[in-house]
Design a protein around this nucleic acid. Structure first.
Lengths: 119, 119
DNA sequence: GTATGCAGTACCCTTTTATATACTAGCTGC
DNA sequence: GCAGCTAGTATATAAAAGGGTACTGCATAC
């Protein structure tokens, strides 16, 4: 693995520095990230409640994706030093600014469900 | 492996039948799918040109994701029986209707690049 | 005759995601 | 005392997705 200037961080698309869509997809790369943001849009949420609402994610993966979103400044993590532990996840301003993306997906999905219902 | 009603197709989110966002994310699940749609938005494109423009995808994966998008009715595949082979990929109406999603991502990415440039 | 382009397929390997379990630490409820 | 709650970490294993490269068959280009 040579460390030349064409290398991109793990999971990043070539050209993510200058292409807006590639940049966005690099940040949102991860199966659960958009869903996490979607669940946090209406209100902050604690870890276990988030896990229940996502129904299907393991705590291992949920932790990893939350940490990644936190590192990218999308999600804020507020730890209250009480017993039992209380950790609240919320969207940063940067995270909330993704709302139009989620909204467009929601609209497209609504149309899809109407036109091609599953059962 | 029991075949009860909670089973979902491979890659699908629990609740994709009724939740619009889960439904959209299920269709768009795949690292290159949104980027493929983005590249096809302005004009149809042939296989190898698409591969060059995506720069980073392997032909194996590009084929697989195009087939999946075709199965979901997002992309149309037009084969011209000539030598050398000429296969043109284009967006269906359903595919073009994803433009607002890409547009929202493009706008978010533009802002990101402006506020946190990489180099 | 060798090189290149097209649109893939076949084979193998690595990374990511999924599942499952055990463990932490203090507090509450029984 | 023991179980259960919180929000994780650690470990192991397995399945799924992603990635690299060689190869095809026919045609044109050199």
């Amino acid at each position: 693995m040579s460390d030349d200037s064409t290398d991109t961080p793990s999971g990043a698309f070539v050209g993510y520095e200058t292409c807006p869509v590639r940049r966005t997809l690099t940040v949102l790369n991860g199966k659960w990230k958009l869903l996490i943001i979607y669940e946090l849009l209406p209100a902050p949420c604690r870890f276990n409640e988030l896990k229940r609402r996502l129904s299907g994610v393991s705590q291992r993966l949920l932790t990893a994706q939350l940490r990644s979103l936190e590192a990218d400044g999308i999600v804020d993590r507020l730890v209250m030093e009480v017993v039992p532990p209380h950790v609240e996840y919320s969207l940063s301003e940067k995270g909330r600014s993704l709302q139009p993306v989620l909204q467009a997906m929601e609209m497209w999905g609504e149309n899809e469900i109407k036109n091609s219902p599953i059962s």
